[in-house]
């Protein structure tokens, strides 16, 4: 279970302060697939960073009772000047996994071939997404935090993600920030709509998508 309790986040710039999230409360149960909806700049990514522990809330807290992936997105989690393999080795070390297993998995999953020997900064965003997904699927988490990134892949990648994440790991939880209402309706069983710093929970995804479209 992951519990967000009275989460608030403000960003300060000089003397100005902006409250991005105001008193957000919700619980993620095992097996939940939660869609995060909201317009650009509404605070979806901020919320994902708070849940993932990348940034700290201004007040409130996040209680994590299951293993939770790092936020999968375009930025973060990688060192650009290191190669794909070096990054895999780093991840294997800090998550205490066997490098040979992770290496085998990402070679198979990402299909990046020799590109894995190149620095990550030379990768396209699609290739980064492949690597990020490959690494986090190689480690196995109870809950995956996914920020937009699922949409950048090509068809082959989408199919793989679908297979690995939605079919093979059906019992896992997921928090998915996305603008693709089609994907969300297909995948998620609950939704959270972030608007003006407030988060509204929906048990009916279609209703959430409807409200989101009317913003």
């Amino acid at each position: 279970m992951i519990i967000c309790k009275d989460l608030c986040k403000s960003y300060k710039h000089g003397l100005k302060s902006k409250r991005v999230l105001d008193n957000v409360n919700f619980t993620v149960e095992p097996g939940d697939r939660i869609a995060l909806l909201g317009r650009n700049g509404a605070g979806k990514s901020t919320l994902i960073k708070l849940i993932g522990g990348v940034e700290m809330p201004t007040s409130g807290k996040v209680i994590r009772n299951m293993t939770l992936s790092w936020p999968l997105g375009f930025a973060g989690g990688f060192q650009g000047s290191l190669t794909g393999y070096d990054n895999a080795r780093f991840i294997a070390r800090i998550y205490q996994r066997k490098y040979s297993d992770i290496r085998a998995f990402i070679e198979e999953f990402t299909e990046l071939g020799n590109q894995l020997k190149m620095p990550v900064k030379t990768y396209s965003s699609g290739m980064r997404a492949r690597l990020a997904f490959g690494l986090s699927l190689a480690i196995e988490f109870d809950c995956y935090l996914i920020d937009e990134v699922i949409m950048v892949g090509d068809q082959n990648f989408n199919r793989k993600c679908h297979h690995e994440l939605l079919e093979r790991r059906q019992s896992r939880s997921m928090i998915l920030a996305s603008h693709s209402t089609e994907l969300i309706q297909q995948v998620c069983n609950r939704a959270i709509l972030v608007h003006n710093g407030q988060a509204t929970e929906y048990d009916d995804v279609n209703q959430a998508v409807h409200d989101y479209s009317n913003l």
Partner: peptide
């Protein structure tokens, strides 16, 4: 900063 994505760091 990008390494702080991993909570154990």
């Amino acid at each position: 900063g990008s390494l702080l994505y991993h909570r154990q760091i």
